[in-house]
Design a protein around this nucleic acid. Sequence first.
DNA 1: AAATGACATGTCTGATTCAACATGTCAAGG
DNA 2: CCTTGACATGTTGAATCAGACATGTCATTT
Lengths: 185, 185
Amino acid sequence: MSLRYALLGLLADEPASGYDLTRKFERALQRYAWHAQHSQIYPELGKLAADGLVEVIAEGARGRRTYAITEQGRTELRSWMLNPPDVFVVRHEFVLRLFLLSTLDPEDARAVLRPVAQESARELATLRESLDRAEATAPPGTELALGRLVAEYGLRSFQTMHDWALWALDRIDQVEAAKAARPAG
Amino acid sequence: MSLRYALLGLLADEPASGYDLTRKFERALQRYAWHAQHSQIYPELGKLAADGLVEVIAEGARGRRTYAITEQGRTELRSWMLNPPDVFVVRHEFVLRLFLLSTLDPEDARAVLRPVAQESARELATLRESLDRAEATAPPGTELALGRLVAEYGLRSFQTMHDWALWALDRIDQVEAAKAARPAG
DNA sequence: AAATGACATGTCTGATTCAACATGTCAAGG
DNA sequence: CCTTGACATGTTGAATCAGACATGTCATTT
């Protein structure tokens, strides 16, 4: 069901084609919130249209079809946003690997953690840059879009991950050092 | 594929039955890393056994079958841990809802964020408590298990979420106040 | 002796999802 | 004119997954 709401959410912002939506998934949702391929997006758009939640508002070059959300679609989306399910579906390969870290020896654990520290730093820098750029563009005093809130969440999450990875690496070193100093244990 | 490694990872720690594994999923993995039901776990255990990555080491009361990881299973798990895929699959209904926050008006956004702030605080308290309990049990100077690292990651993640939700609520208030003070805008 | 509830393992149907296959358009460069 | 690459939309078959159904055990309480 979530894919359907992800699409409605993206279309609530502005009309878009299947291709546009696929790119939006790749740029924004894919890495943080919801993964989907175009082979899933096109059929779902069809179902959404059949259910009257979106409609085709233009057909352009190369068979391009632009979809817009309908009033009914907006109502449906809002109702989903305000009435969350009890239990959220979470599937996060990255975090799963963190959980399974305890199956490795210290050397292997370090080998897993080092790239985590590096990549989170890189991701963080990218996010920060695009946020700064957006803030520089908006005139001061301008009402901030709610989208800014999510960007901040992403920023903080990656900062947390980065700090944690460094802390974890340090921790492993400490434990090893303590063990070396007390070989009897 | 991830379910298979999640199961191998849990079995790497200690042998367990399908029922045990289902409960472990519910307690630990389900909310943070990987969601799976028993109707998926039982068949996957069968496949794992057929592939020689786990084996039945005991059959107990009520048809209970205890599985243990094999050497081959450990090798397979380690190789997956050390050779991560390029792109991680992420499906996170909760974060998806955050992304779609921008489709709501400020009043609705607040209604979504308030429970987030509350629940993250509750989750945080629970985690902190169980961590403190674990630390009190372990004699001082004891080598800390790598599992401690993940607990810390969970703790930090919920702290980040909580802080962010409060920040976001505050931000929305500020923007509204600014708008009220400047009704012409 | 019966009822209840936690324990325990499975199957089945339909929905979701993935990877691969398939087709074609249009613009720019050689 | 031909090639390349970005644009654009789909289908198909296999695998994965969810929710409901199904079955039975064992310990405790009534």
